[in-house]
Simulated scan of single mutants.
Amino acid sequence: MRKRQGFILLYTIVWICMVMTVWLPKEAYACSCAMPASVQEELQRSEAVFSGKVIGITEKKGLLRSSADPLKVQVSVSNVWKGAIAPEATVYTALSSASCGYGFQPNTEYLIYAGRDADGQLQTNLCSRTKPLAKAEEDLTALGTGQGPTGQKAALSGQSPWVPWAGALGALVIVYVLGRTVTVMVYGYYLTRKHLPDLIRAHKTLQHEELPSEIHFGVKDKKRKPVPELIGLAAAAVAAVIVYYVLR
């Protein structure tokens, strides 16, 4: 009986040790990083470099966890220096700093240097230059002005605010001239076909030196609305609006 109780006790101790080994973070293996790279070196070897505020952090659920488990971090992106980054990005890091996981905090802005894993997911770690945006003065100075995330209307660095207006004005003039020229030709062809019989009769009448009232058939058309001008102006306005929002 005592042997059986001793076996059960030994089995229980072994089982508890196994569970603690798998469940608890493996703090025994500390993260070791080399000397930090320069801003330009880190920019070159990173797949994406961007800044934004952490709006959500999700840990792996379950009893069996490891310090190397992925931590999902959702970021509202404000500025991008490298990579096609959406307005809301997801980046992964290890659960614990023991596995080089970066300790993100909710509602805090960060400058993030990230690579991509085999599945294309963004990854960052404690050994990168990822840091709170408030402590990234050196990085921001070296990186310069970035641009807005993909899908947002953001002016590129150094672009003059007059560029959209200049482009819109140029499109307005060009499209109006071309549109009016085409519509004049089409409208003239339409009027010619419409009044061709009258022109033939007028020509025959003039040959007989008579001046009937039919000669003045064109007076009514002169009083019509300027169709070519209206069409050309409408097309030019549409083109100007499109060009403005593209360059904005």
Rank of each mutant, 00 (worst) to 15 (best):
R224C: 01
K222V: 02
E109M: 05
E41D: 15
M18K: 04
S51W: 03
D198L: 13
Y187T: 09
K225S: 11
M18E: 06
R45V: 11
L230S: 11
D119Y: 09
P197W: 04
E47N: 15
L64V: 13
A171I: 05
E214H: 14
Y190C: 05
I200C: 02
A136P: 09
V22P: 00
E27Y: 13
Y102R: 12
V219E: 12
A68I: 07
Q147W: 11
S51P: 08
L10N: 02
A34F: 05
V177S: 06
N79P: 01
G148A: 12
G103N: 13
G218L: 11
P164G: 09
A235Y: 03
E59Q: 14
Y176C: 06
H216D: 12
T141M: 08
V177E: 05
Y187G: 12
S96V: 00
D69N: 13
L111F: 12
G115E: 09
V246N: 07
D221H: 10
K153A: 11
G83V: 03
G52Y: 01
D221V: 06
Q147Y: 09
A239E: 03
Q105G: 00
C127G: 06
P132W: 01
E59L: 10
G158V: 03
Y245M: 10
K131A: 13
V182T: 13
S66W: 02
A171V: 03
P226H: 07
E138K: 14
R224Y: 06
K131T: 15
Q5H: 12
S99G: 07
V77Y: 08
T108Y: 02
L191W: 07
A37C: 01
N125C: 07
L64Y: 07
G144A: 05
